[in-house]
Design a protein around this nucleic acid. Structure first.
Length: 555
RNA sequence: AGGGCCGUCGCCAAGCGGUAAGGCACUGGAUUUUGAUUCCAGCAUUCCCAGGUUCGAAUCCUGGCGGCCCUGCCA
């Protein structure tokens, strides 16, 4: 078998490959650097897939590093969830989890180094003043009046900053680059601020914290990161990233590469907005099955494989596009179709009495667990005079397009008999409450002897012996393809029908053995998994991961 | 508007001077006890636009147009 159909490398893989071949680097080390200020979402999953995947493909290692330079927004709860999500996605970081805060001492020493080199100064400008001095996109900024302080004074003030001599926000340590630079990030950026906040890792050891720009590249250098991959918004920070690497005696020379972040239509992937959905209780927590968080997708029933496949399908470029939600849905259907045991579950039950079937008779029907995979074995289910079918699968009359049960017509009960409907029993309101039908003799595994074949196949379950359960049907959280585009308020586009809870659903008896790890295909309905939050042994609650592809009921 | 980045089918995305891969979606048609799966077939004479270079351009040059990012002591 030749591998001539192998996928072309994406641009970052190509860079890594060329760096290895040219000897620019001798080994690959990447890192996934989340800030522990929220739960990971599908966009992070792509970064995880890319960074860990790069390391795997090129025989390297990938670190997990918490970018924890802002204690006010961060929390240990988030670091725990991040670790769990990364592992669930199927990846293991090299060695221990790293933290930018592990390097606070080194970063401090390097700041002192910059001061001694005359390249950093303590600035007394207030935030407002600093903004005014910074200039605008088209006008150069002005140099801070404190820029010319002596090295000695800067050293003394910076030490006092560290020792808590000044109130929060009163001074900063800035680096001297160029107030006239067309890249605003180079206009003497702040690298330390005073912030009396208890840090989830370092406690109250520090009252000054390094900025992202100052901490990130040096952390990469300390860890020996060969390829520091981030998203496009950091592209304009690269000159600063390089300035630090060039002006500080770091142990390695990492390089930053940027790719476009993942956008999916009908979805918001912004930590701030996801947090708002959670905080304002629009959803049932970070792991609400409708959330695009890794924990939400997990609870919804997505598999790590589907998520990784999806990331691969979407590709890596610098084009800022929007991937169709349909691609994610395709990925999960494809995986689940291959691995899911089949089962029958009637979501909206309608009783069918088989008038010619003896009341005291029970037959055991046998069905394959997976029609395309015999190795998965068979399952058994009882069949008797009273069964349940879905309300949508019966009509008193219908055109010939309709392939389900119709009065006077036949339909196949999946894995069982062909039946023919005789009568629809209605209540006082005219609602059909029961169908009376007949079993066509000797039709299990064969067509009717009279040659009148059934038009279609419907699922069913014994009315006497089944598993009562709740089923939750999910739809996209937003009804607008771009809920947060432009100046739109994404909350106005929440889909009011994103969750439909069905009670009194009846599943085949085997479903009583379902565990949280099992994903089933409810035949003709979709893929389902037990809800980890609400399901109990007494009352199973199934989440619909995704419906089957439907080329009939197009809304 | 100063700087940076981007523009190939409805959506992703290959292509890197030699005459438009692939996936999703969609449309047929075959098989099917899931209107699923599987299977076959179709789906950009054209690459944001306009000029230019060249025997030859999506690929090179010039000029436009459109989009995104940057004026946090956030990351």
């Amino acid at each position: 078998m030749s591998e001539e159909t192998s996928k072309p490398l994406n641009f970052i893989e190509r860079i890594v490959k060329e760096d290895l071949e040219s000897g620019k680097v001798t080994s690959v080390r990447t890192r996934f650097p989340p800030e522990p200020n929220g739960y990971l979402h599908i966009g992070h999953a792509k970064s995880i897939w890319l960074n860990f995947g790069l390391a795997q493909k090129f025989g390297g290692k990938c670190n997990l590093r918490m970018d924890d330079t802002n204690p006010e927004k961060e929390d240990e709860e988030y670091v725990e969830s991040i670790k769990a999500d990364v592992q669930w996605l199927g990846y293991q970081w090299d060695g221990e989890v790293h933290y930018a805060s592990d390097y606070f001492d080194q970063l401090y020493d390097w700041a002192v180094y910059l001061i001694k080199a005359g390249k950093a100064f303590v600035c007394d400008l207030t935030a407002d003043e600093m903004r005014a001095y910074r200039g605008t996109l088209t006008e150069a900024g002005k140099e801070s009046p404190f820029r010319t302080r002596s090295v000695e004074e800067n050293l003394e003030l910076f030490t006092q900053m560290r020792d808590g001599a000044f109130p929060d926000g009163s001074r900063t340590l800035r680096v001297k680059i160029d107030m006239a630079s067309s890249n605003i990030n180079l206009r003497d950026p702040v690298i330390y601020r005073i912030k009396r906040a208890t840090h989830h890792q370092t406690g109250d050891k520090w009252c000054i914290y390094p900025s992202y720009d100052y901490a990130h590249g040096q952390s990469d250098a300390i860890e020996g990161i060969s390829h520091s991959v981030c998203t496009l918004e950091f592209e304009v920070h690269r000159p600063l990233y390089e300035w630090f690497i060039d002006n500080i005696p770091v142990p390695a020379q990492p390089h930053q590469y940027e790719f476009s972040r993942l956008n999916i239509n009908y979805t918001v992937t912004s930590k701030r907005k996801l947090k708002q959905l959670v905080d304002e209780k629009h959803v049932d927590g970070w792991n609400d099955p409708r959330m695009p968080t890794v924990s939400g997708l997990r609870r919804r029933g997505f598999t790590p494989k589907a998520i990784n496949d999806f990331c691969e399908m979407a590709g890596v470029t610098k084009v800022e596009g929007v991937v169709d939600l349909g691609m994610l849905e395709f990925a999960i259907r494809e995986d689940l179709n291959n691995i899911s045991p089949r089962a029958m579950c009637v979501l909206r039950p309608l009783k069918v009495t088989l008038t010619n079937y003896p009341d005291d008779q029970v037959e055991t029907m046998t069905a394959p667990v997976h029609p395309q995979n015999e190795a998965m074995g068979t399952r058994a289910m009882p069949f008797c005079r009273e069964i349940l079918i879905d309300q949508d699968d019966f009509r008193e009359e219908a055109n010939k397009q309709y392939k389900r049960l119709v009065l006077g017509k036949r339909v196949r009960l999946r894995n069982s008999y062909v039946i023919e409907a005789d009568e629809a029993v209605k209540d006082a309101d005219g609602t059909i409450i029961e169908v009376r039908a007949r079993v066509i003799e000797d039709t299990v595994g064969k067509d009717p002897a009279d040659g009148v074949k059934a038009k279609g196949v419907i699922h069913w379950v014994s009315a006497r012996d089944n598993v009562d359960c709740e089923v939750r049907l999910y739809d996209r959280l937003f009804s607008d393809p771009a809920p947060d585009a432009g100046g739109k308020n994404f909350l106005e586009f929440m889909n009011p029908h994103s969750l439909e809870i069905l009670n009194g659903c009846k599943g085949e008896i085997g479903l009583a053995q379902a565990t949280l790890d099992d994903r089933y295909q409810f035949e003709r309905e979709g893929y389902f998994v037990l809800d980890s939050k609400y399901s109990t042994t007494e009352k199973p609650v199934f989440n619909r991961v995704i419906g089957l592809k439907d080329t009939w009921e197009k809304k």
